[in-house]
């Protein structure tokens, strides 16, 4: 868990899109990983947790909403940004209700996505800080 650089997991069934996005993101100093499906994404998360997940809503197999539900169940602190087509606005709304951080419409402007990631990371950091403080308080109580 790096303080300055967020670890981001990108989940998209369009491998070409995913690869290019990963290259661009790592070029911008973000610690990235990619997964071609919801299932793969969950497996990678099990190996090591990412701070932020950027995920397509429409995917074959386990779709974005299902994956989101699973992520929020297992890693509630991980923030999720949904990528949607226009037709899946309904799904985006559902995603927001399930606790996604935000949504973006494809094709995505790279800068916009970066801002969103930074925002989400900011939120993650605040959350982590609060938890840390509570942990310290608990420890000092013990000692």
């Amino acid at each position: 868990m790096n303080q300055g650089r967020p670890t981001v997991l990108f989940v998209d069934d369009e491998i070409d899109f995913l690869n290019t996005l990963l290259k661009r993101m790592s070029k911008r100093g973000i610690d990235v990983r990619g997964a071609g499906s919801g299932e793969e994404g969950l497996r990678l998360m099990q190996k090591s947790k990412s701070d932020i997940i950027v995920m397509d809503v429409r995917m074959p197999g386990m779709d974005g909403i299902e994956t989101l539900r699973e992520i929020k169940r297992q890693w509630p602190l991980t923030e999720v940004i949904m990528l949607t087509g226009h037709a899946s606005l309904e799904a985006a709304r559902e995603g927001m209700e399930l606790g996604a951080f935000d949504y973006l419409m494809k094709p995505v402007d790279i800068d916009e996505l970066l801002y969103k990631i930074e925002d989400a990371f900011g939120k993650v950091l605040i959350q982590q800080k609060k938890i840390k403080r509570l942990e310290e308080a608990a420890e000092s109580k013990h000692t």
Binding site: E14, F17, T20, H86, A87, K106, P107, V108
Partner: peptide
């Protein structure tokens, strides 16, 4: 139309992304 639009959306997204990568 929705199906077509969605299908076109993805390749366009890739194209834009690749162009962005070249720019990078």
């Amino acid at each position: 139309a929705a199906g077509i639009a969605h299908e076109i959306n993805n390749p366009v997204a890739i194209m834009v992304e690749e162009a962005g990568w070249i720019q990078d």
